[in-house]
Design a binder for these strands. Structure first.
Lengths: 346, 346
DNA sequence: TGGTACTACGCAAACGTTTTCGTGTTGAAA
DNA sequence: TTTCAACACGAAAACGTTTGCGTAGTACCA
């Protein structure tokens, strides 16, 4: 087992100094052609590669991006990561991942672990618990130390940093408009409690779409789901609520859900109750993922272009790191949404 | 914007030497109580944190694990990652991610990028292209340089390293046995071409299960899917094959598919053709994911315990890194599979 | 007063690089 | 023979730590 070879070892072997070796490898004309080729041949033979850690220490930059997301077993987030990774790799950066599991403490710990020199900047999506507690000291500290942050999807407006978001309101309007245009008159909404920012915005979009089409919203058609760490329980509760809603409000002919799972759950219940989809019940979900695509019938959705979000986030961060862009100027990039029409709409 | 504070700055500020500061912070009794508390107070005030990179260079260990997987937008792999991350974080390690996108070249590049000091060891699942080319030089080089590797799921048998695999054959046997026990007599198999190792093993399990139950396998009931970078095309082709199969072999009353997507595709077609599931057509898939859980009807599957695979992989790697285990001894851990009975089986 | 023994600190090396600056050798010009 | 430039290389600092060892200063004892 031959350990990694260093400049020093090469120097000793060839009986020259470390600096000569370094210069020779970088093809400095300060070194004679003779020595240069000798060193380069030797280095190639022993498969010399400069030690990244030493370079990082010297250059005060690691060429590594820290990404902190609430969870990875989630189609949206893994898509974003693949976008980040793609762009980062193209520009010679590595990606190091931390998971907060929606927990404030884990988010703080992860940030602290990475902020001590391991990375050059963060891309992150804020944990729900953090949003609830509204404690953002770890973000402020990080930024204060001169480490740039790009927030995506779940952002904190009051923090001065670059952001990449989806136009939740407009996306929802598109979805609801589609339902109305295809003839739905009583559209139910399945959303989350208001403290989840995206839930709130999507609800607003729903309301605005109705108003623009001269339909007065009825709060009796809206279900606000209480999120639960245990998704099983959350969904079970939701099932009961949907079932009750459909029993009570017989006129419902359309459902807009703020995520795939809620939509699928609703669809399952509607089918059980004998509704024909999309003939007398249309469904659209926010967030496009595998579930929607492969559901039977396949679900019409609002796609958030997650990969693009990731790419854009990485671009913004790296541009800032490489000072291609004004350090003090923060931008908020809005990613477009697209309506993907599948089999749950007419 | 206050930059990160270093030992040197603290030393200068308090008019002592760097070593004194370092020792004081580590509470060495070599330093007077007086100085110690002074230094510690100052460090706390300025929120001093040792620079990870400097520590890595000095200690020759980064406390970071490199993970290379074929793709991240994949339920199985993201589950494994969450397992790795959990165990790694518990033991004070970070996780850095590389995606090969099933490409040999990207796999090599990723490994080379990370192997130069950035990480202490690898956890990886081999890209399909690499398996096809059978070019494993990058793995050998890495191991030769003294960097441990743990392979999971898609492993290369001939390489001497730790491995974590699923018992594909046994899992498949369980699935097929379930179908037979519930009364199926003509069970179709949807699998991949044989060069994908897991496809091959799962096919073997299917065959063995049939034989053990005195059923002679019929090759006319087996579809071997040619994988395609473009999943859309792959699935479209598959749809035609399944449709043709069901038209030709009317006696089929059970389907075993080597992954969720194949199973869902088959189910969709069967439903369209008027089969009642599970009354006159049962389906089981290998690999448990969101699709199976939320399909309508929900799909019975063989769960691979992906999180456990990740945890186990991380445990094995870290044990080796921390020399809790013999460096030269390589183990292969086999993770159990479980049959999850849902609504596509009787 | 001289010797001993702590105490409390500083120096310097080391990890692997890159880069600036200094220096010895050569050859040619004066 | 002297002078000077060009050439080819080495020494050392720097990045931020940790740690073994050396050493002032003090106190105590004989």
């Amino acid at each position: 087992m031959k350990r990694k070879v260093t400049l020093k070892q090469i120097a000793k072997e060839l009986d020259v100094s470390v600096s000569t070796v370094s210069k020779a490898l970088r093809n400095s004309k300060e070194i004679s052609l003779d020595t240069r080729s000798k060193v380069q041949a030797f280095a190639k033979l022993y498969n010399y590669r400069p030690n990244n850690i030493a370079l990082s220490l010297k250059n005060k930059r690691t060429k590594t991006i820290g990404v902190i997301i609430p969870e990875i077993v989630h189609h949206f987030f893994s898509k974003v990561i693949s976008g980040i990774e793609k762009e980062a790799n193209n520009r010679g950066y590595n990606v190091i991942i931390g998971l907060s599991n929606e927990s404030f403490d884990k988010e703080v710990i992860n940030i602290e672990m990475l902020a001590n020199g391991s990375i050059d900047g963060f891309i992150l999506s804020v944990a729900k618990e953090t949003l609830l507690l509204q404690d953002y000291h770890h973000f402020y500290e990080t930024i204060n130390q001169g480490m740039p942050i790009v927030m995506f999807d779940r952002v904190v407006n009051e923090i001065a940093c670059d952001k990449v978001v989806v136009d939740d309101k407009l996306g929802s309007k598109k979805a609801v408009a589609k339902l109305i245009d295809s003839g739905c008159e009583n559209i139910a909404l399945i959303t989350t409690k208001d403290y989840v920012n995206v839930g709130k915005l999507r609800t607003q979009g729903y309301l605005e779409a109705l108003e623009e089409h001269k339909i007065t919203p009825k709060s009796s058609l809206i279900i606000k789901v209480e999120e639960n760490k245990d998704k099983e329980i959350e969904i079970e509760t939701l099932e009961k609520e949907i079932s009750a809603l459909l029993d009570k409000e017989k006129s419902i002919d359309g459902i807009f859900a703020v995520n795939e799972l809620y939509a699928i759950t609703a669809m399952k219940i509607a089918i059980n109750k004998g509704y024909k989809i999309p003939e007398n019940m249309s469904i659209v979900a926010f967030t496009d993922g595998v579930l929607s695509k492969h559901a039977i019938p396949s679900l019409s959705t609002i796609s958030q272009h997650a990969v693009e979000m990731g790419e854009k986030s990485a671009t913004m961060l790296i541009d800032k790191l490489e000072e291609l862009v004004d350090e003090e100027k923060y931008q908020t990039e809005v990613i477009n949404t697209t309506l993907i029409e599948r089999d749950t709409t007419r």
